[in-house]
Design a protein around this nucleic acid. Structure first.
Lengths: 137, 137
DNA sequence: CTTGACGTTTACGTTAACGTCAACTTATGC
DNA sequence: GCATAAGTTGACGTTAACGTAAACGTCAAG
């Protein structure tokens, strides 16, 4: 790990382009404490780590989490220490979040199998339409 | 299937209680075309099927879908027929939705394994705190 | 040196998904 | 038969997550 890892950085426009979001969105996330890029004078400079955090944010979004929850997650992720009480609170949060995710997994499995059903019915319909065409109905 | 299935029905308050949502929410969903309960005079009467639809809506919500998308889904679910073009459109929609779900599955898997990491770090921290206590640090 | 391309802050606008009255009608228990 | 609990339709309020526009700084290229 020399320059290759440490010195890589991105402009706000680069990140926006890469993840197909607007610069407004990125600044908004910063306003909501989800990102804390460095500054070169006035301008924002994003490190490798900032980029990773942004990816985490977007993943949270895909899972339907509110930004406040996402911020909690991220802060948990980079806060390994603390007092005993704090740590126990954190473990509890993780466990309830885990339950939510497991629930989502079930929901996805159900939705997927229903999609299979619907698609099958659609294709059955389609082939019956084909036959109608052939027999000239 | 006699009375047992056909004649079961629910009041708006019953459904609200069962799913832990407000009656306002249920009426809102109706306004958004997600539900179409029967009426006995002025009052809404929910059938078994209505209840199932509501469950579908709530599942969609847990997966983070917007209500408009959920409505699409539901309508696909109970519209098995149509013209060829319509059917093909529907199959396409199913496939893109499926991709979204698969993406979500990946995201969940990643999040779960990261939760494992964090929890492990928390527990390590905790046990090291225990030792500090014993040795009187 | 000025013209874009890119960046900044500030502030108001917008949409989704309900919450919260208000004002009124309908059922139900006693 | 009358209180009271439950239901109905507006209508306005609220919060989250940005969009959009104004007004301005900066820096490299022609």
């Amino acid at each position: 790990m020399r320059q290759s890892d440490k010195d890589i950085h991105y402009s706000i426009a680069e990140l926006a382009k890469e993840f197909d979001i607007t610069t407004r969105t990125i600044r908004f996330y910063e306003d909501k404490q989800l990102l804390k890029p460095a500054r070169r004078g006035q301008q924002r400079v994003y490190s490798r780590a900032d980029r990773t955090r942004l990816k985490l944010v977007l993943r949270g979004k895909r899972l339907g989490w509110p930004l406040d929850d996402i911020r909690e997650m991220i802060h948990m992720y980079d806060a390994p220490g603390g007092e005993e009480k704090q740590l126990r609170v954190m473990i509890n949060r993780i466990n309830t979040s885990r339950e939510t995710l497991l629930r989502q997994q079930e929901d996805i499995a159900l939705a997927l199998s229903e999609f299979d059903d619907i698609q099958l019915r659609c294709e059955t319909q389609l082939s019956s339409l084909q036959i109608s065409n052939l027999t000239g109905t």
